[in-house]
Simulated assay, not measured.
Amino acid sequence: MIKEGDYALFFDERGKKRLIKIRREGRFQSDLGYIEYKDVIGRYYGERFETSKNRFIWVLKPSLYDFIMKIKRRTQIVYPKDIGYIIVKLGVKHNSKILEIGTGSGALTTAFAWILSKEGLIDTFDKRCEFIELAKENVSKVNPEAKVNFHCIDALKADFKNEYYDIAFVDIDSPWNVVDRVYNALKPSGRVGFVLPTYNQVEKLLPYLDNKFIDL
Rank of each mutant, 00 (worst) to 15 (best):
Ile2Ala: 09
Ile2Gly: 11
Glu4Ile: 14
Glu4Asp: 14
Phe11Thr: 03
Phe11Ile: 02
Asp12Phe: 13
Glu13Ser: 11
Arg14Gln: 15
Arg14Lys: 15
Leu19Lys: 15
Ile22His: 11
Ile22Glu: 11
Gly26Gln: 14
Arg27Phe: 15
Arg27Gln: 15
Phe28Asp: 04
Gln29Asp: 15
Gly33Glu: 14
Lys38Ala: 14
Asp39Gln: 12
Val40Ser: 07
Tyr45Gly: 12
Glu47Lys: 01
Glu47Arg: 02
Arg48Thr: 08
Arg48Gly: 03
Arg48Lys: 13
Arg48Asp: 08
Arg48Ser: 07
Glu50Tyr: 04
Glu50Cys: 06
Glu50Thr: 13
Glu50Met: 11
Thr51Val: 07
Ser52Ile: 13
Arg55Tyr: 12
Val59Pro: 04
Val59Asn: 03
Lys61Asn: 06
Pro62Gln: 10
Leu64Asp: 07
Asp66Pro: 06
Phe67Gly: 09
Ile68Met: 12
Ile71Asn: 10
Ile71Tyr: 11
Lys72Trp: 05
Arg73Tyr: 04
Arg74Asp: 14
Val78Ile: 13
Val78Gln: 00
Val78Cys: 01
Val78His: 00
Tyr79Cys: 02
Ile83Tyr: 00
Ile83Ala: 00
Ile83Glu: 00
Tyr85Lys: 12
Ile86Asp: 03
Val88Gln: 10
Val88Met: 11
Gly91Thr: 06
Gly91Phe: 08
Gly91Met: 06
His94Met: 05
Asn95Glu: 06
Asn95Trp: 07
Ser96Phe: 00
Ile98Thr: 01
Glu100Cys: 01
Ile101Tyr: 08
Gly104Arg: 13
Gly106His: 14
Ala107Thr: 04
Ala107Arg: 05
Thr109Leu: 02
Thr110Ala: 02
Ala111Ile: 04
Ala111Leu: 00
Ala111Met: 01
Ala113Asn: 02
Leu116Ile: 04
Ser117Phe: 06
Thr124Asn: 00
Thr124Cys: 00
Phe125Gln: 04
Asp126Ser: 01
Glu130His: 02
Glu130Tyr: 00
Ile132Thr: 09
Glu133Ser: 11
Glu133Phe: 12
Leu134Glu: 02
Ala135Met: 06
Ala135Thr: 10
Lys136Asp: 05
Asn138Pro: 08
Asn138Trp: 01
Val139Phe: 05
Val139Met: 05
Val142Gly: 11
Asn143Thr: 13
Asn143Phe: 10
Asn143Ile: 12
Pro144Ala: 08
Ala146Glu: 10
Cys152Gly: 13
Asp154Thr: 07
Leu156Ile: 12
Phe160Asn: 07
Lys161Glu: 11
Lys161His: 04
Asn162Ala: 12
Tyr165His: 04
Asp166Gln: 05
Ile167Asn: 02
Ala168His: 07
Ala168Lys: 08
Asp171Ile: 10
Ile172Met: 01
Trp176Gly: 10
Val178Leu: 03
Val179Gln: 09
Asp180His: 13
Arg181Leu: 08
Tyr183Asn: 05
Asn184Thr: 08
Ala185Glu: 00
Ser189Met: 14
Ser189Leu: 15
Gly190Thr: 04
Gly190His: 03
Gly190Lys: 07
Arg191Val: 03
Gly193Leu: 01
Phe194Tyr: 12
Phe194Ile: 04
Phe194Arg: 03
Val195Ala: 05
Val195Glu: 08
Leu196Lys: 13
Thr198Met: 11
Tyr199His: 14
Gln201Arg: 14
Lys204Ala: 08
Lys204Arg: 15
Lys204Thr: 09
Leu206Cys: 03
Pro207Asp: 06
Pro207Cys: 03
Leu209His: 06
Asp210Met: 10
Asp210Thr: 09
Asn211Trp: 08
Lys212Asn: 07
Phe213Ser: 05
